[in-house]
Design a protein around this nucleic acid. Structure first.
Lengths: 200, 200, 200, 200
DNA sequence: AATGAATGAGTATTCATTCAT
DNA sequence: GATGAATGAATACTCATTCAT
């Protein structure tokens, strides 16, 4: 019994993960209109199984987003201990941008913005990014008036820029990361017209 | 006869414009999934009337997008003759960003990207932006390796940034425009890792 | 006034006929689902004009059918005086079949079966066909137990047969007219299992 | 498990058949414009259920037609082994005519003519009819120049004839079958003006 | 009498969600 | 827990008909 229930449980966990992975792929390819049927087919399970793990499509979206943010948080956490703070910040933005480029899931954010789980992991990511920024600022790598929230908000910008150019080389976004990062540097910084926003 | 046919036509034109305006609002609020029924209700006409002016939902999207791009093009054209090229470029980005902030219709772009009308007006806008950028570069207001296409792609970035922060002050985006514009300035420019993209 | 009202009236008559002709063509090509808009376009008039002549689509169908039957009636009437009654009957079936082949409007019959005008012209056609049959019978060209109603009902059969063979030669139906007409001949006639129907 | 999945499947099969039967009835009564909603209501299922069994209305039409042709093919096949070839052919035409009389689905044929399944079953039916005809011809029951294709095309003619007489006795069509069959007999056959068509 | 813009009921089809097995 | 058949609300689009001009 214990053995068989373990079996069942581990099978279930496996299915859950398959569904999550399939959902990520499907959403990235089809956008938010990706259908639960297609996700189930891609995961190799029945439609009902998807709903037994995620009560609604929105719950599934939340899980995908949380997953995504958690991965990013790990990266930020690790880089928070790197020796060169300026290089660490740039690397974080590079890794985050690359993930974003591989799978655009931003449209899922708004659908999951109100969820408690997502909010919590977002806050934890924000905290780690703030650490990266504080260290970079202290090291003189970025201007003094840039906050963690600023950088947190800027994460997706470089990739978003190139999405308006269909057929662009896949790494073109690095050009815009460089431009934007230059805007964060202390050299030649002009005063900013609005104060940094609060993170509430 | 002339009078009455003019009357008729002007009423029809009025309805057409009401539908267009309602579509803009509805798309901005609901995204691309805004239904034609809702648009019709908002415009105060019957569903059939929408289709008598725009044969398909896609045609309606194209009209909305073309409208928007045309307005932007007019702004760019006008600023192309302004005395201070650097200030003109910044003002263009300010005006364009503000429009974008009031109504986010970017998701309509991809749905209408293949349309001939949209492509043409996009190309004309691109040409005018390129003029602005060329003049700003010649005046030393921006770095030498920035092209019109670069700026064209960057137009929406500052507003996109703040969309990840619900409840942000409505003009917070100006902060990020300043940061990004600083990245375009010649002072303290670091070499860009990728060449500027072609506009095809 | 008299002159101008005459003008108007004759223009109206002309429009009416254009609409009728366009409706015949359009129905023959598209079937009963042919739209009033398409008929109007084909006639070169506005949709409203069609409805000012024929209050409903059904009225238009009735007019087309009545027209068709009237033409057929004229043929039958003329052949009722021909010298060779057997040849006259065969010729009637040939002419009628040919019309039917050029424009299949049978599907309109059921939509107009209850109409008084159609019923009347149908009855008149039936009477003329009966004359043709009576004379042919008297001349020994067809079997004694065949009635006018029998032949009236058989008119469309030969063409209907070939409609199940797409790509058939356009005159293949004559083969089946010959076969069916052979069935009407006195030679080798077997007794018929059911009495001839009444025409009510 | 086996039992429960069988149960499930058998319920589904039952629904599928209900839908098919309802579609047959509804199409026979309303013509090809019969709506899927009405079919669903008649079958006692929800609209979505119809589409879960038949992805499109056309698929449903194909299934109805294929069903019908398959039934007819079985009859032809069985009669191909009957002792009296002439009587067998007449019986086939009688059975086929009777089915046709009960439900006129000919208009569905053209809507499904391009379908591979329908084409195949049609060809098989054609082959069986050809066998019937060949045997009848060899037995001297029909004229030598009549082919299987001729008879295949003539199947619906007798019933079609009486459809122009609303309120006709339900077996009146047998009269016209007798007449047409007489036309196929060797006695008093006149030469046919066109060659028999190919079956391609 | 002619016009054509407006109407709104009707059509096929999709899809998240439920539930009996 | 897994299945997939059934559901029905929602969507884009069509078209006969009306009516102000």
């Amino acid at each position: 019994m214990t053995t068989s229930s373990r079996r069942l449980r581990s099978d279930a966990v496996r299915n859950r993960e398959r569904v999550l992975a399939a959902a990520e792929d499907e959403f990235a390819e089809q956008g938010i209109e990706a259908s639960v049927s297609d996700i189930a087919r891609r995961a190799g399970v029945a439609k009902g199984t998807v709903f037994s793990h995620f009560a609604t499509k929105e719950d599934l979206i939340v899980a995908v987003v949380a997953n995504h943010l958690a991965e990013l948080k790990e990266v930020a956490e690790r880089l928070g201990k790197a020796p060169d703070p300026g290089a660490a910040l740039l690397e974080f933005l590079t890794v985050a941008g690359d993930r974003r480029r591989q799978r655009d899931l931003t449209f899922l954010m708004s659908a999951s913005a109100d969820d408690a789980t997502v909010t919590e992991i977002r806050n934890r990511l924000h905290a780690d990014v703030t650490t990266l920024v504080d260290r970079a600022r202290a090291a003189g790598a970025i201007r003094h008036d840039i906050t963690g929230t600023d950088v947190f908000l800027l994460i997706c910008a470089p990739v978003h820029v190139v999405e308006n150019l269909p057929g662009a080389p896949s790494d073109l976004w690095l050009r815009y990361l460089a431009i934007i990062f230059d805007g964060l540097r202390p050299e030649g910084a002009s005063p900013l017209p609005r104060p940094a926003p609060d993170w509430s």
